[in-house]
Design a protein around this nucleic acid. Structure first.
Lengths: 152, 152
DNA sequence: CGTGAAAACCGAATCAG
DNA sequence: CTGATTCGGTTTTCACG
């Protein structure tokens, strides 16, 4: 479904999602038209589901990040935590996990006080216990996909 | 540094980072020129540090995600784990954290076997113990920044 | 599935108001 | 910041290999 050329296009557009077709064409070594056709297909088949800027969290007033693991208070309930939490915009990611807890959240807030409020909101909204791990420093995230990637 | 209008631009371009200045202009209610000026400033001041596509991990052949917490074997060593690990393209994010372990990694691999190999690579490269939490399902991540955001 | 070229469109840059 | 202008680059489409 996605061949080696598609991967090269994904690598190129991953370095700069606002790159023009001509720029992608250069990097990939295909004609502009071919790149356009393939890129459209990558979008329509759901390989690429959107484009986002990488925004400095501090500039948005949210310098504090944390992982929050949550566990249902009552193990025998309709477990719809993700839907119950999706309205909280401070939650950037929500994964169900195999481990000590049921879900792992990644959140960003403005201050410790806001983190406290968010944790309370999460507990109330999803009927869960929480275990929070504060992020002290982020060394990297949102990396472009590696040219070459893992050894194949 | 970033006022309310900048936030609106960030929200708009967060929904589609390939949007044209005219499209952003519509959403924000400013002229194209003003949007252009502000967007350039957001880029040059480091508020926006790049643009990325949102790519389906399965399409890239990496359906398995995990969190890996790492702890130095020897607490009295030059702690340069992030640099020692940055060459591993399977590691998407690396945060230092306050909690049971020193760092939290987020990784994506093709298979359990590749995860095993990655964990070994991490242990050898950074002289650390690891604690891995497998992701069973991702409900959301890479969400556009919320129109309105947290209640102000 | 790729190329290349023509035509329509859009973005960058500039400037007066 | 707006609105207008100009130029150059980009997207799009299409005929062809």
């Amino acid at each position: 479904m996605t061949d080696a050329v598609d991967i090269r296009i994904l690598e190129a557009i991953s370095a700069d999602a606002r790159a023009t077709l001509a720029q992608l064409s250069d990097k990939v070594g295909l004609s502009v038209s071919a790149v356009q056709t393939r890129l459209r297909k990558l979008e329509s088949t759901g390989v690429i589901t959107g484009y986002r800027p990488v925004v400095d969290p501090e500039a948005l007033g949210k310098p504090l990040a944390a992982f929050i693991e949550i566990t249902p208070l009552d193990p025998g309930q309709p477990d719809d935590a993700p839907e119950r939490l999706s309205h909280l915009s401070e939650i950037e990611a929500c994964h169900s996990v195999a481990g000590d807890s049921a879900y792992m959240l990644f959140v960003r807030v403005a201050s410790p006080r806001d983190l406290e409020a968010l944790i309370r909101d999460i507990r109330l909204a999803a009927s869960v216990n929480t275990r929070t791990t504060i992020v002290l420093q982020t060394f990297f995230e949102n990396r472009p996909i590696a040219p070459g990637g893992p050894r194949d």
